[in-house]
């Protein structure tokens, strides 16, 4: 094995070690409301919550990152992230509608164990519309996808604003916190199975599709001329990215920047080949989300824990600006 092929594998191994360290940190970190920050193995009564939180953080971070890699390749756009297609806004509108129905009819959609359902329905509904409107001559078109996603985001945003006027103040606050993303400490079995299955299946399928994603970075005519069946490849990338994003947003809300930054950070260490990039980006995504969640547990301003999305945005924003200015942000 040459030094050139060894380097990405060593980088990948280091990423996994860092991910493991961050998960251990998340398990150890503890700060009860108003109390002191301590690092200790959790008591049996707390352990389940911390394990759930760390595990879900890994799944959510990895899913967002894989979705980001898929969309950046599909849209040939380094600015693409899982929510560029309007999924987060669709999920947000779904949650808002769930809250409104709960308020008007007393139906509990958003805050019980099945609270992910409205978000999931909203995200999948938007995914379907983007798919139907984002095609040209029967094939998904990168530019059309982005434009349709942006327009649907704006429309869903307007719908959410209308609903905000119709619900009481307390529910508005709930939505605001949901919009920043939270890593749940409690999930029921079906939620755990869904998030795990989608993440692992997404990782495997995206890794298998790595070579096709490499070819998809060529112009349409060139990609086809080297043998890439463009239509089915794009459809698979779209559905996979959409499923990963929809499940994460349903479980944890729209956690920003992870799907945008993790692929770029992974590219810096393992290069642009998608087969290894998918795995490295999944590791980086897991690191970012679990580290942000651990930070969220450690910091207490006396008004409860800050949403994890606050920290991913605070880390991701400057990192993105650095990538932009340094010219290292390429697909």
């Amino acid at each position: 094995m040459s030094a050139l092929t060894k380097r990405p594998l060593i980088a990948l191994a280091i990423l996994f070690i860092i991910a493991l360290a961050v998960v251990v940190l998340r398990l150890l970190i503890d700060r009860p409301p108003g109390g002191e920050l301590t690092l200790a193995w959790p008591e049996e009564s707390y352990a389940k919550y911390r394990f759930t939180s760390a595990f879900v953080g890994v799944m959510i971070g990895a899913s967002l990152a894989i979705s980001g890699v898929l969309l950046q390749a599909l849209l040939r756009n380094p600015l693409a992230s899982p929510f560029i297609l309007g999924l987060s806004s669709g999920a947000g509108l779904g949650v808002m509608i769930g809250m409104y129905l709960g308020y008007v009819f007393g139906i509990q959609f958003a805050n019980d164990a099945t609270g992910t359902a409205p978000a999931m329905v909203g995200a999948v509904f938007i995914l379907l519309i983007v798919y139907l409107l984002g095609r040209r001559r029967g094939v998904l078109d990168p530019l059309s996808l982005v434009l349709v996603g942006v327009i649907l985001s704006a429309m869903c945003g307007a719908g959410m604003m209308v609903l905000q006027y119709l619900v009481p103040d307390g529910l508005r606050g709930d939505l605001l916190i949901w919009m920043m993303g939270q890593i749940p400490q409690v999930l029921n079995n079906s939620q755990l199975i869904i998030v795990t299955t989608v993440c692992i299946a997404g990782l495997i399928v995206a890794t298998i599709m790595g070579k096709a994603m490499d070819a998809a970075t060529f112009s349409d005519d060139e990609a086809r001329s080297i043998g890439l069946n463009l239509g089915p490849t794009r459809l698979a990338m779209f559905l996979l990215a959409g499923a990963l994003a929809a499940v994460t947003v349903a479980i944890a809300g729209p956690i920003g920047f992870v799907g945008l930054i993790a692929p770029h950070a992974a590219r810096l260490v393992v290069g642009p080949r998608h087969r290894i990039l998918v795995i490295a980006a999944a590791a980086v995504g897991a690191i970012l989300v679990v580290a942000a969640d651990a930070t969220s547990q450690a910091i207490d301003f006396g008004h409860g824990r800050l949403p994890v999305g606050v920290f991913t945005a605070l880390i991701g924003g400057p990192a993105f600006i650095w990538l932009l200015r340094s010219g290292k942000g390429q697909v």
Partner: peptide, 27 residues
């Protein structure tokens, strides 16, 4: 013809080649 079959008998070069990933020349 499927893209796979066509690729085995013909290669195409456009006037302005586009590669949207940071691949090396060899890649």
């Amino acid at each position: 013809l499927s893209a796979r079959v066509l690729a085995k008998c013909a290669a195409y070069v456009p006037q302005r080649p586009i590669v949207s990933a940071a691949f090396s020349v060899r890649e």
